[in-house]
Design a protein around this nucleic acid. Structure first.
Length: 448
RNA sequence: GAGGCAUUGGUGUAAUGGCAGCACGAUAGUCUGUGGCACUGUCGGUAGGGGUUCGAAUCCCCUAUGCCUCCCCA
């Protein structure tokens, strides 16, 4: 057999993808809705660099966390700076708040952002190494209404995109603050220490590193032990309790369906009080309507978090800045696009091309080259296949893209300053003066 | 990071150790002055590398990528 000497084509890096016009249509629809809602509620846009000092992300996570080394894209610059591709949006925004003197703006400062983030993880569906997020943050306020506002905005955006109220559920919890959480954590650790031998191997490890994550474990033994475990909600201090109660009242007021999920946690210490995730649940009506504090239901409905967030009052201090209470949310755009497709939610349709310009012969081709620009200037979205000279082929393309009108410019027309306007639907055509063309097109399209 | 399943033209698929085929697509023509249809031609593939074999898309190994279950999830 002849030796095939082919070289492998270079492809995109693992977990990173091109996004083509179809997906971009979805993306644009999501972002339009998100921007409208965020702007309406007084948020202003912000763009931060893709590269930041690695320290900005390292410090909040704590040096011990192996998330850092394993999952961050880091690099050393020629000058010796240690930088990282941003893995999330919140820390850069807190940095930007102080760096741009936003402390002297009217408080709270409300910001929204959109862009790519990078995590060196094993790719899976809805989990890529470069992924896009939309997020909103409220900095400089600890009022419970702000927590509720952030949740409401995330919820409204998902609704506006087209997800049904039947499928969306806000899962919410309070994980206390720096006063009451350590006490709870100690109690939880004590409880699990007594049950240590019955825990799965992952949870044995978690008990040391991150005991609150045990509540997340799906192993049957651990789920069983969890039932008797002390619950955060019963250990909230008075201020946290009042804050959480108030958040829930605002959600009730805003008619946002939520489920208290006592096992919803966050791994890092700078989070406090409110944490939430918005899930897409396939058969919500099957859960006999119970928005009670029963914890996550045990049935197997596939659940996907489309958005999540919480309050991070301690982050600014950890970053070495002044105390800055803040709350935020972010949503995973690829994941949302995937679910939109699955649920057949239609994306924004791109501008429909209704007019198609066709030439016959070299003189007409030259004229077409400038005529396109005249059409654009007149606000008419026109298509062409100017690199092809065959009339049939051009008409074929016009038909395929569903053009309503074909403008046919032949040698004769190019000479005498006219053009044929062909109605593709009725297969009828007429000759008009090029000077009257725009007018004619507008009249024709209006009739449809 | 662990384990599992996959990968055949641009897309969707067939071929279970014996001729890589079909459909869609793209492209050209029939047909430089009138489209969707039709017909004809053309383009284009076994993810990459190695091994077993007379013979490999098919069996084995390595690598890459995708997906699934975990780990983790800022």
């Amino acid at each position: 057999m002849a030796k095939k000497s082919k070289r492998e084509m270079i492809h995109s890096p693992k977990g990173m993808h091109d996004m083509l016009h179809e997906d971009i249509g979805y993306l644009e629809r999501i972002l339009e809705n998100a921007h409208d809602i965020a702007e309406f509620y007084g948020f202003t846009p912000i763009k931060t660099p893709h590269l930041e000092a690695a320290e900005l992300f390292l410090r909040p996570l704590g040096e011990t966390s192996d998330v850092v080394e394993k999952e961050m894209y880091t690099l050393r610059t020629k000058g010796g700076d240690f930088l990282a591709l941003r893995p999330e949006g919140t820390a850069p925004i807190v940095r930007a708040y102080f760096e741009n003197g936003m402390g002297s703006f009217p408080q709270p400062v409300k910001l929204y952002y959109e862009g790519s983030f990078f995590r060196h993880e094993k790719p899976q569906r809805g989990r890529f190494r470069e992924f896009r997020q939309f997020g909103a943050e409220v900095l400089g306020g600890d009022d419970a209404v702000l927590d509720a506002l952030i949740i409401k905005i995330a919820y409204l955006i998902l609704r506006e995109i087209g997800f049904s109220a039947k499928n969306l559920l806000v899962r919410i919890n309070s994980i206390g603050d720096k006063e009451c959480r350590p006490i709870y954590k100690k109690e939880l650790t004590n409880y699990y220490r007594k049950k240590f031998n019955y825990l799965c191997k992952d949870c044995k490890r978690r008990l040391k590193d991150n005991p609150m994550r045990i509540l997340d474990c799906k192993e049957p033994e651990c789920v069983e032990i969890k039932a008797q475990a002390p619950q955060m909600i019963e250990h909230l201090c008075e201020t946290c309790k009042a804050h959480f109660k108030s958040v829930l009242e605002f959600l009730d007021e805003g008619q946002i369906p939520y489920l208290l999920d006592n096992y919803l946690v966050r791994g890092f210490d700078y989070y406090g009080r409110t944490v939430f995730e918005i899930f897409l649940e396939d058969d919500l009506q099957k859960n006999d309507g119970g928005a009670e504090s029963t914890g996550p239901d045990e049935n197997k409905t596939p659940k996907i978090a489309l958005a999540g967030g919480g309050r991070y009052d301690e982050l600014a201090v950890i970053l070495g800045a002044k105390n800055l209470p803040a709350v935020g949310m972010s949503m995973g755009l690829e994941r949302i696009i995937h679910e939109m497709k699955r649920l057949q939610i239609t994306p924004r349709t791109r501008t429909e091309i209704k007019v198609f310009l066709i030439h016959i012969g070299p003189a007409a081709k030259k004229r077409s080259f400038t005529l396109m620009e005249e059409l654009r200037a007149a606000g008419i979205s026109a298509g062409e296949s100017i690199s092809r000279d065959n009339l049939k082929t051009q008409l074929n393309v016009a038909a395929k893209i569903g053009a309503k009108l074909a403008l046919i410019l032949g040698q004769k027309e190019a000479m005498d300053g006219t053009i044929l306007v062909r109605d593709m639907v009725e297969s009828a055509q007429e000759t008009v003066l090029q000077s009257k063309l725009i007018e004619k097109i507008k009249a024709k399209l209006k009739k449809k």
